[in-house]
Design a protein around this nucleic acid. Structure first.
Lengths: 277, 277
DNA sequence: ACCCGGATGCGTACTTTGTACGCAACGATG
DNA sequence: CATCGTTGCGTACAAAGTACGCATCCGGGT
């Protein structure tokens, strides 16, 4: 009398192999399911790359995703779109990427590596923060869509690239003998400002893309002409400010000017604590 | 010989009415299409409310949308969900709202009306901006999802509620004899900071909801325990700051402290220009 | 009384997304 | 050569937005 064997995946009865080693699964499908379950434990994000050049790799997928997102925005990024970009089937991507969410996370990490962190120590804290702000600004210019993850990543997930960015900016305060909590407050204010401006930059980029699409479809866009802001009736201060030199926003100049203000605010607090530069 | 009549909508041949006034459309469907086309010209957002109490109105739909978005986040807001909330069919909503996008826009306008603007003139510019910041902060606390539109609304669309908010904050600089462009720069810095912090507030709220859902599904969440930030190796400054009093973020306190810094920055610039308070 | 058009509610169906599932094929290895 | 790890991908399903058109109610002119 022999033991009744069961499929290791579905548990159904399993007739023993007629010769050779014993069977483990009742079907190829069950084998695949077992493999998938095993793989779920260790995501194996790094491809084995034993042969060195495979058709589909995480890197290629992530790069294709970045190309699409840069060109058409994060809204246009779909798994089918990425697959089309690579000339493969949609579901093939899922062998290398756990989900679309995972893909975007990887894209953000990769995109942030495009703009290098400063490697020399800053001359002083102000220089350090200005350098950090410039780096972020450059990042948001190149890849506006990363902001959608920066907002989510704040505390929910851990991102090496983001942590390295913060750490680098943090190092601006080295040697000032600052309390950690104070340095954190300064960083909070600084990062909030930068993110806030990035929000405007991103929505500007999106609006421009939208209007470009609209302009392509119908020749004349309704445009800025009858913008209610420009009628001085209801919102006089806003209208005046909009007209006074701020009409075609020079977002870069505004960013720099606001940044100077934020840094002045930090300087004032430092002075108040007697930690003058 | 009589003129060949055509349907006013589809243009197909139309046999004349056997009695009474002549027909306009070949079918009820064409009539409805013509009505829709006419309505597209004048959106008629305000319901006629001739009887005073109709089942479905824009207000009820918008209110239901706000309830859903407040409770379950903007991601959970779907037309079917709102319809379910109201006990009607999904497509009924489209008689009162042009699209989901339109609904969200209306929701933002309505939600912003929940927190009133200050009606007295501010004591000084600093007081005015603090008041404005408090109002925004309260808004984002109550309806975190409005941020998703504030970012889009920046320049692309016009929003009365948002314009009123800006205008009110702008009025803080009245009487200082400031150049419009300077006032705009200050406003830009101020608004960017507030939006930046709001981004963190919103993503915190979202993360909390997510973890609440996760905790409901599986009893133990993986949680903060093995957060790589807390291992002091790779990101020492970040880890130290996180431990030093910033672990359960007091976002309100951080907001106020950063706001003070931003206002100090404006004050420094005012002093530099000889426009001391 | 009657009928037509304005207006509203809503069922059906199509599109676009993410993605679960399982088959087929390829290479290595016993 | 049978088996297994691995990869590619076709099929299919679930959600979500929404176009379309039918049914219905109401008010006003004939």
């Amino acid at each position: 009398m022999s033991v009744q064997l069961a499929c290791a995946s579905c548990g159904r009865a399993l007739e023993p192999a007629d010769r050779g080693r014993p069977r483990l699964y009742c079907s190829r499908a069950c084998q695949a399911r077992a493999y998938r379950a095993r793989r779920a434990q260790t995501p194996a994000r790094v491809p084995v790359s034993d042969d060195g050049a495979r058709h589909l790799t995480v890197e290629r997928i992530v790069r294709a995703g970045i190309v699409v997102a840069d060109a058409e925005g994060l809204d246009a990024l779909s798994m089918r779109r990425v697959a089309m970009e690579l000339g493969t089937g949609t579901m093939s991507l899922y062998r290398h990427v756990a989900s679309k969410d995972d893909l975007v996370t990887l894209m953000v990490e990769a995109a942030m590596a495009d703009v290098p962190l400063p490697d020399s120590p800053p001359r002083n804290w102000r220089h350090g923060l200005e350098r950090a702000a410039c780096r972020d600004w450059e990042l948001y210019h190149r890849h506006p869509w990363i902001l959608s993850r920066v907002m989510v990543t704040t505390r929910a997930y851990f991102s090496p690239a983001l942590a390295a960015d913060s750490e680098s900016a943090f190092s601006s305060f080295d040697g000032l003998g600052l309390e950690s909590a104070d340095a954190f407050r300064y960083m909070f204010m600084f990062a909030s400002y930068v993110q806030g401006v990035a929000l405007i930059l991103v929505s500007d980029a999106e609006a421009e893309r939208q209007s470009r699409i609209a302009a392509k479809q119908e020749t004349q866009a309704s445009g800025h002409a009858q913008d209610p802001l420009y009628e001085p009736g209801a919102y006089p201060r806003l209208a005046r400010a909009m007209r006074a030199g701020a009409d075609p926003w020079d977002l870069d100049a505004l960013f720099v000017s606001g940044l100077a203000g934020v840094l002045d605010g930090i300087a004032a607090d430092l002075t108040r604590r007697g930690i003058d530069v």
